[in-house]
Design a protein around this nucleic acid. Structure first.
Length: 220
DNA sequence: CTACGGATTTTCT
DNA sequence: GAAAATCCGTAGT
């Protein structure tokens, strides 16, 4: 089931946590490329020093954040990467959730070609783990760039869905957001959420990787 | 494991 | 002109 407008038009921290475990899909060149969302960050707009829309800043780049909920906000950063957000709240309230990591599901060869110009079966364990474990990495893997800025997530190109066999039996960890050292007191807010012990989280836990390794998981 | 620097260009002041 | 919601490789522990 594709997530509805109603899903996105809620408190941003709620949407952030509820997005964990859902599946991000990009239909591109007639193929479904998808991954399970395992890590997100909330950006709460006007009052959030870490948000691009802090103090009501309304530049061309952040326009999408001011629009209707359930649309994409894709921006370019560090001279070479794109990051994808989901716009939340009603029109005029510029808040969003950054998708920080997904676990690859469909289109594995396309993803591995996009990232490493190799077939999935030829990837090293390290490359598999790094396929989509970060906001810039997942955009490369899923072919998400600024042409998808303002894209309606209730459409048929880029969307998020809840799957029938969805396993919602996971623990959510709350932590500080990453890469926002300039944000003064806002840098300490616990607005990053991720699925505990999932190996595709951007800053994954070593202890759990060692644990998985003992079971000979293929991505270790 | 951690720490650090370089890449690269849009965006905003 | 400086900074940026990142990633990668290398060197040190």
């Amino acid at each position: 089931m594709k997530l509805s407008r109603r899903f996105y038009n809620r408190e941003t921290l709620t949407v952030a946590k509820k997005l964990l475990g859902k599946v991000l899909v990009h239909e591109f060149n007639g193929e479904k490329i998808s991954g399970k969302i395992v890590e997100v960050e909330a950006y709460k707009g006007i009052a959030d020093k870490a948000a691009h829309s802090y103090r009501g800043r309304k530049t061309k780049r952040v326009e999408a954040m001011y629009g209707e909920s359930g649309h994409a906000y894709v921006y370019f950063i560090y001279g070479m990467y794109n990051c994808m957000n989901v716009v939340t709240r009603e029109k005029g309230v510029p808040q969003a959730v950054l998708i920080r990591a997904v676990e690859p599901l469909e289109g594995l060869d396309t993803m591995s070609m996009n990232r490493y110009n190799k077939l999935y079966k030829d990837l090293s364990k390290k490359q598999i783990r790094n396929l989509t474990s970060g906001p810039g990495k997942l955009c490369i893997a899923l072919s998400i760039d600024r042409t998808l800025d303002k894209q309606d997530l209730c459409g048929n190109i880029l969307y998020i869905e809840e799957r029938e066999n969805n396993n919602n039996n996971f623990e959510i960890i709350e932590s500080k957001r990453i890469g926002i050292d300039y944000a003064e007191e806002a840098k300490d807010y616990l607005w990053r959420f991720y699925i505990k012990n999932n190996p595709f989280v951007s800053k994954y836990m070593l202890s759990f990787c060692i644990y998985l390794k003992s079971f000979n998981f293929k991505w270790m």
